[in-house]
Structure formats: structure tokens, C-alpha cells
Simulated scan of single mutants.
Amino acid sequence: METATVTAFTPWASLFGGVLIGLSAVMVMGLFGRIAGISGITNGFLGAVVPMAGAPRDRDWRLAFLLGLIAAPLALMLAGGTVEQTVPRNLAGMAVAGLLVGLGTALGSGCTSGHGVCGLARLSRRSLVAVLTFMAAGFATVFILRHILGVS
């Protein structure tokens, strides 16, 4: 998979983003008593919209959270900032990767934000195992793609 742009080193912007992610995780836990994992929020929202047995009834905050993920970069651009994203140009590869990530979040009962940000902060052993698994899979994928298959 080719990348469209090279990711820049932005320590201050990254620190500020990390603080905002942590703040949002604390707010979701404090206000709603829920974990701020994107896959769980999205799954719960879809379950509240599409009638399913056992679906949560708290779709309003979930919708607001998801809309905030879209609105934040738009607000930054309106304020004169730029938003750059590194994405592969290979659509088939992106589709396969997306399906694998979806499968992983289903098998791992959560995603990197739920386990990595919230679970580790709660000292969850299950989240520690999940994060170690995510990281090992990421390392192995990069190694295989770059050093064995020669994809940059």
C-alpha cells in the first residue's frame, strides 16, 4: 500500500490531541458511566437506531460524540488550520484492513481507544492483553509489509 503523504512530527499538536482524548474519556465516564471506545460507541449508536434486542437506549450522547469526531476537523479548517491525513491509495487494501480491524474489535471486545486509553487507565488486565496484542499485530504487519514484501 502506498501512502499519499508522509506524517510530520508534531509533538505539541500530538500532546494537545492526547490531552483532549483523555479529557473526553474522563467526561464520558463521569457523565454517562460508559467507556469512550469508538467501536463500542458506534456499535451502541447503530444498535439504538436499528431495532435490536438488548440495544442501548442512550443514542443521543453517542450521536453527539460521533458528530464531534466529524465536526472537530471541520471547525479547525474553518478557523484557518489544515487537516492532513496519511491514507493508503490502495482501496482494496484499505477495505481488507478495515474488515480485519472490525473483526479484531469484535474478537477483542473493543478497540484501541477503549482498551488503550480507558482500559489501561483503569488497570484492566484484559485491556493490557488487548493492547499488547494490537501492538504485536501492528509490529508484525509493518515488518512483513516493509521488510518481507517490500511494500513502502
Rank of each mutant, 00 (worst) to 15 (best):
T82E: 13
A55W: 02
G54E: 05
V49F: 08
V142A: 06
E2F: 01
A8H: 13
M94F: 10
G116N: 03
P73T: 08
P73A: 08
L76D: 00
F134P: 00
H147P: 01
V28K: 10
S14W: 01
V87P: 00
G104N: 03
R89V: 08
A13I: 11
W61T: 02
W12F: 12
L100C: 10
Q85L: 15
G37E: 04
V83N: 07
I21W: 03
F45C: 10
A130Y: 13
A55E: 01
L100V: 06
L149M: 14
R62Y: 06
A95V: 06
W61I: 02
A92L: 09
L149W: 14
A8V: 09
M1Y: 12
A121L: 02
M52V: 01
A72Q: 08
I38W: 10
G40L: 01
I21L: 14
G30W: 09
A140N: 08
T3C: 00
G68C: 03
L23M: 12
S124N: 09
A140Q: 07
G104H: 02
V129M: 02
T112V: 06
P51T: 11
L78F: 14
I21N: 02
A79H: 10
L20S: 07
S14G: 01
M1D: 10
L103S: 08
R57L: 05
A8D: 11
L107I: 00
S109A: 03
I148F: 13
T112P: 01
V96H: 02
G33E: 03
L69K: 09
L132M: 13
G54R: 04
V101K: 02
G98R: 03
G30V: 04
L67W: 12
A136K: 07
G116A: 05
G80Y: 09
V6L: 14
M94C: 04
P51Q: 10
R34M: 06
P56A: 08
